[in-house]
Simulated scan of single mutants.
Amino acid sequence: MTKLKTLIVDDEPLALKLLRAKLNKIPDIEIVGECKNGREAIAATLDLSPQLIFLDIQMPGLDGFDVVKSLQSDILPLIVFTTAYEQYALDAFDVHAVDYILKPIDDERIVRAVQRAQERLEGVDTQEDKPRILGAIDSINQRKNSETSSNRSIPSLFPMNTFVDKKIVIKDRDEITILKQSDIEWVDAAGDYVCLHSQGETHIKRSTLKELLSELDDNIFKRVHRSTIVNLNFIDKVIPHTKGEFFLLLGEFEKIKVSRNYKDAIKHFLLG
């Protein structure tokens, strides 16, 4: 297998050294250059034509997303983002990154990222994605500018001093079950009924998903699919899928799909 011509970019010398050492262990990688900021990364990419870039996101001056945008009109290598900040994960996959690695970087994630890069290089023409990538980066930059200009921190999704644990009443013949909203993990639609999943049990209530959503606390319950609502407090992992979709892991067993139309709720959750 041909070695991947690889450029590594990070503004921290120690991080750059560590990344180089880990990549040097992988036979399929040829490091053709190292850069310590965004401007160097753009120049090196145009000069060296790497197939793969390990690119830090947060850098002074031009950040990782700025670098990718600046390269669109000339060359589009495969990108693996590296960062200490997990809130950028969904943005990274929005711009069609091969992978997103949180620092401190471990060997297993590096190897997996290289494997993904090889697979994509063999099977996908990434040039076709340029318009979508540019649009995604513009959207990211607009959001960052808006956050900066507001000059205030993002409010917590879960303001503990104002939260009231409301109840949901479920009538079943002669019985009435009262569920605390904080115990409801997720809800899915079933025709004219909804299934509320709580503490290992499923409770069925006659209601549409829209009607139920109006009863639920909108600070913690978000619609993630046309037929699914989740309690953000129970999300353990967010796993990128294909075409802008994601999966949420709730506890050990539940895997919930997030459609593209509702993914902003999960972005706000990560940013919070």
Rank of each mutant, 00 (worst) to 15 (best):
T2M: 14
K3R: 02
K5H: 05
T6F: 02
I8A: 03
D10I: 00
D10H: 04
P13T: 01
P13A: 01
A15V: 00
K17Y: 11
L18Y: 09
R20M: 11
N24G: 05
K25N: 05
K25L: 03
I26Q: 12
E30H: 13
G33R: 13
C35D: 10
C35I: 08
G38A: 11
E40K: 13
I42H: 13
L46E: 13
L48C: 08
P50W: 04
I57S: 01
M59Y: 15
G61F: 02
L62R: 07
L62T: 02
D63F: 12
V67Q: 11
V67E: 13
V68Y: 05
K69H: 01
S70F: 09
S73I: 04
D74T: 12
I75W: 15
P77G: 05
P77R: 01
L78V: 06
T82F: 00
T82H: 03
L90F: 08
D91G: 09
D94Y: 00
H96Q: 08
A97E: 03
L102K: 13
I105N: 04
D106R: 07
R109M: 06
I110E: 12
V111F: 09
V111A: 12
R112Q: 15
V114T: 07
A117E: 04
L121V: 09
E122F: 10
G123Q: 11
D125T: 06
Q127A: 15
I137Y: 01
I137R: 02
I137M: 01
D138K: 01
Q142C: 08
K144N: 05
T148C: 04
S150G: 08
N151H: 12
S153N: 03
P159G: 09
T162F: 08
D165W: 08
I168P: 07
V169W: 06
K171H: 15
R173D: 15
I176P: 06
I176C: 10
T177N: 05
I178P: 02
K180F: 12
S182Y: 10
S182W: 10
D183L: 09
I184P: 13
D188S: 07
D188Q: 06
D188F: 08
A189M: 07
V194A: 06
H197P: 00
E201A: 15
E201P: 05
E201L: 13
H203Q: 13
K205S: 07
K205E: 10
K205T: 05
K205I: 06
K210N: 09
K210P: 07
K210A: 09
E211K: 02
E211I: 03
S214T: 15
E215R: 02
E215F: 06
L216H: 11
D218E: 14
N219K: 14
V224I: 03
V224W: 01
H225A: 13
H225W: 08
R226M: 05
R226V: 09
T228E: 11
I229H: 00
N231P: 00
L232D: 04
I235G: 02
I235N: 02
D236A: 02
D236Y: 01
V238Y: 04
K243G: 03
K243W: 03
E245T: 15
G251Q: 14
G251L: 15
E252Q: 15
E252P: 12
F253C: 10
I256C: 13
S259E: 10
N261E: 13
Y262P: 01
K267I: 03
H268N: 12
F269H: 15
L270G: 11
G272M: 09
